[in-house]
Amino acid sequence: MRVRVKVLSPVHIGNGERISRLEFFVEKGRLKVYKFDRIISTIERLANPQLRNNAYLWFKTSKNLSLEEFLRNFKINLEPNYELEINGSLNSSQVEEFIKILEGPYIPGSELKGSIRHLIACAWFMDKPDLVIEKVKQLLNSGRAKDQREQNNVEGELERSVFYPKGERDAQFDVLKVLSIPDSQPLPYQSLRVEVPKLIGSNRTLYPCEALKEGVEFEMEININKNAYRGLETQRKLPEIGKHFSDENAFWNFLVDCSRNFYSKLLDEEIKFFQNRHQDIAKHLEKLKNHLNTSGVLLRLGKHEGILSTTLLLIVKEKDKALFDEFFRATQNIAREQTNKTRRVNSQGLTFGWLLLERL
Rank of each mutant, 00 (worst) to 15 (best):
M1V: 10
R2V: 00
R4S: 08
V7F: 03
L8I: 04
H12F: 12
H12P: 14
H12S: 07
G16T: 08
E17P: 00
F24V: 12
R30K: 15
V33H: 12
K35W: 12
F36K: 14
F36E: 00
I39V: 14
I40A: 11
I40K: 15
I40V: 15
E44N: 12
A47T: 06
N48C: 12
Q50P: 04
Q50F: 09
N53H: 08
N54H: 07
F59M: 08
T61A: 10
S62K: 13
L65Y: 02
S66M: 04
E68Q: 10
E68D: 09
E69T: 14
F70E: 03
F70D: 03
L71K: 10
N73W: 04
F74C: 09
F74N: 12
I76F: 08
L78C: 11
L78Y: 05
E85C: 06
N91Y: 11
E97V: 09
I101Y: 02
L102H: 14
P105K: 06
P108E: 00
S110I: 08
S115R: 05
A121E: 00
A123W: 11
W124D: 02
D127Y: 13
P129G: 05
D130H: 15
L131T: 01
L131A: 12
V136G: 07
K137M: 04
Q138E: 11
N141R: 13
S142M: 02
Q148I: 13
R149Y: 01
E150D: 09
N152F: 04
P165S: 05
G167V: 02
G167E: 11
G167M: 02
E168D: 13
A171C: 00
P182E: 07
P182L: 06
D183P: 01
S184E: 01
L187F: 01
L187D: 01
Y189Q: 04
Y189E: 12
Q190L: 11
L192S: 05
V196Q: 08
L199D: 00
L199P: 04
G201L: 07
S202E: 03
C209R: 15
E210K: 06
A211C: 06
K213C: 06
E214G: 06
E217T: 09
E221P: 00
I222C: 04
N223C: 10
N227K: 10
R230L: 11
E240R: 11
E240M: 14
G242D: 11
F245T: 06
N249D: 15
D257P: 10
F262L: 03
L266A: 10
D268I: 13
E269C: 08
K272R: 15
F274R: 15
N276W: 10
H278N: 14
L285S: 05
E286G: 09
L288K: 14
L288Y: 09
H291S: 15
H291T: 06
L292G: 01
N293L: 15
N293S: 15
T294Q: 07
G296M: 14
V297S: 01
L299S: 01
H304T: 11
I307H: 02
T310E: 03
T311C: 07
K319G: 00
F327S: 09
Q332L: 07
R336Y: 07
E337H: 03
K341Y: 01
R344L: 03
R344A: 07
R344V: 03
V345Q: 05
Q348Y: 03
L350Y: 14
T351S: 14
T351P: 08
W354A: 08
L355M: 15
L356D: 00
R359C: 12
R359N: 13
